[in-house]
């Protein structure tokens, strides 16, 4: 299963991913028409910074999703690809999902009074944020491959440590 992974050490904080996301969720899907669109299109991920770190925070499409579990109106659902999405017309604006999301990546559409969240650009091969990142701080990764690769890295460092003893 492929997930959007973040490599914080590569993030320039340029927020191009945010722009790419908002443009993808605009009417014409081009930057120049998106900046002129009113009300403005909304982004679904957020570049945040702390001491010595900056990185985008993005919906994980959790397998046991707190937002989905908490949604009482049946707005949030899991689609056939496994993405946690909205049936917009069902959202009642109770903000329970915002309350329970551990990452704080659900926001509120102030015009339409409904919850807004990442839809993993379900129509696109590569999500807009990943596509927009000039430094590949955002990448598509197979989760299982990822664990395997990490185990290899552990072995590699261990064996180096031994040979240096």
């Amino acid at each position: 299963m492929k997930q959007i992974f973040v490599r914080p050490e590569r993030c320039m904080g340029c927020k191009s991913c945010e722009i790419g996301c908002a443009v993808q969720h605009s009417k014409d899907k081009t930057l120049y028409s998106a900046v002129l669109q009113s009300p403005a299109p909304m982004k679904r991920l957020f570049v945040e910074a702390g001491e010595n770190i900056r990185m985008p925070i993005i919906c994980r499409h959790c397998e046991d999703a707190p937002c989905l579990n908490a949604c009482i109106s049946g707005c949030l659902y899991r689609d056939e690809k496994g993405f946690v999405r909205r049936r917009k017309e069902r959202c009642i604006g109770c903000w329970t999902c915002i309350m329970v999301c551990p990452f704080g990546v659900i926001t509120r559409d102030r015009e339409k009074h409904i919850a807004v969240k990442c839809d993993r650009c379900h129509k696109l091969e590569v999500p807009a944020c990943v596509n927009a990142c000039p430094t590949h701080a955002l990448v598509m990764v197979d989760v299982d491959e990822m664990s395997k690769e990490k185990r290899h890295m552990v072995i590699l460092t261990e064996s180096k440590a031994i040979s240096h003893q």
């Binding site: 340029c14 927020k15 191009s16 945010e18 790419g20 998106a34 900046v35 982004k43």
Partner: peptide, 30 residues
Amino acid sequence: QIPQCGFGETGLCCRNCMQGPCRIDPFGEG
């Protein structure tokens, strides 16, 4: 170079002093 930075493309970044660089969020949230 693709994607080029949207802030630059819209003229919304400033490096005129060392308190910057500053950017303005064209979508109004930031």
